[in-house]
Design a protein around this nucleic acid. Sequence first.
DNA 1: CAAATAGTGTCTCTAAGACAATATCAC
DNA 2: GTGATATTGTCTTAGAGACACTATTTG
Lengths: 270, 270
Amino acid sequence: MNSENEFLQAYHIDDYERPSLTADVASFMIRSEQMDNYRQNADSKLTVLLIRRGGHPFQNCWALPGGFLMPGETIEECAVREIMEETNVRPVSLMPVGIFSEPGRDPRGWIISAAFASVIVANDVKVQSGDDASDAMWFDVQFEQTPEGTSQLTLSCGDIRLKAILKEKKTVFGITTFEIMDSGQIAFDHAGIIAAALTALRSHAAHFDMIFDFLPPEFTLSELQRVQETIMGISLLPANFRRKINDYVTETDQYVRGAGHRPARLYRRK
Amino acid sequence: MNSENEFLQAYHIDDYERPSLTADVASFMIRSEQMDNYRQNADSKLTVLLIRRGGHPFQNCWALPGGFLMPGETIEECAVREIMEETNVRPVSLMPVGIFSEPGRDPRGWIISAAFASVIVANDVKVQSGDDASDAMWFDVQFEQTPEGTSQLTLSCGDIRLKAILKEKKTVFGITTFEIMDSGQIAFDHAGIIAAALTALRSHAAHFDMIFDFLPPEFTLSELQRVQETIMGISLLPANFRRKINDYVTETDQYVRGAGHRPARLYRRK
DNA sequence: CAAATAGTGTCTCTAAGACAATATCAC
DNA sequence: GTGATATTGTCTTAGAGACACTATTTG
């Protein structure tokens, strides 16, 4: 009988055909837009990071940042490495979204994607607004159910407007996957990945799972409420939000002044 | 400038090193044990399917069923194929558990595992109780928090008793991962995969997400309640369970008689 | 009848939604 | 003062937990 060492020496892993494995990441950030009225708080928009593909395939199309898993790293480390290559910022949280392994999803060959969603603190990122020189841009996200039972994902950045049509395939164990009816010029199956990531993000936002990650360590409760509203696409009553969030935050003795209305207390995550 | 076709012809995917990708599946089933007292309903135990490894590495250890992803199939198809090879039964549901990519997790080389949990209807499986001739066996599952802050996973089947000690690493977005302190003779990192699968199963059972999948199409509410109790390891008050489950089931006009007590109505999933 | 499960009714407590009311600041 | 947000209080309603009670069967 062979010993384990003998077995391992005789074992040739190359006998089997292997896929390539990539980590693709949908990084979300909330962009604040100053209002004209000096009294009013800033408006908020949910954005996702896309990069323009310089080479084939899908040349000049927009895609999620991602790259091949390298020997010696975990898939999460690979995902974080890819985000940092594009943003120079370490994401605060990384949420698994799914494994995309449909044959033919990548014309280059047998490539499987482990998809993640990540959250980036707005303040930490250098602002790029319609800067065409860069190949990485934050796109405003709009995601709506249509009357026909499909979903429409609209990503816009300056004059660029990508519109994808998706159909909800199935929802099991809280994970929703989408079939792409029209990719809207988004590379590969990334429209479906973004939709799945967004759905996951929304369902977790309801339980305060990562809304803190969009903000710096100190924040007002209004800012925090606006994060949740922006992600979930709904509006909340301040009184109820404050009551529910109360267990998750600690108050500081700092206030934000100079806003043309009552100063807001700063809080920290508990 | 090259056309996309020219690019793809020149593209050699073999230039990059690639991992092997496997699907490993924790299949859960609920085993009913007849009681001595003729009046009493059967007792229920949660079990998980393990196979004894015939070859190296981890020869003669117990492991989760799993196998390499083949070209042309999705990772979910691969997982279902592996379950059916062991049980001849198509699982009713397949729940993603995580990607296990820690370097060194498999002595054979660079092998990444996509882990799933699946649910098997008890009636459909031929019973094996302590049948040593077979290399696939259902192990009773016990999973408890210890006072020291670790978790103990005990898998037992006849005289075989595998005890693993795990430490909760982190819980983000409802997904809990474990560090293996003592694998308890369970092959590879499969003790950690089983613990993660079990944790996912429990959290979903609370919302009735897959408790139906453990039973045949027609069932009594007591049976359904016992499924939830067995998975979550708690006991529930019948009155409250019936009230909550009411929206998810439709009653039939069939009854189960001959049990030494009031007959129970059969229900179907709505 | 006894023992067991099946099934119903209802009390209490908590959490969430809705909304009214007050506080505070910059202009 | 005006207009905006910040913050607190409270009424109502929906749901969960606890528990008492009735119904039905077989040995």
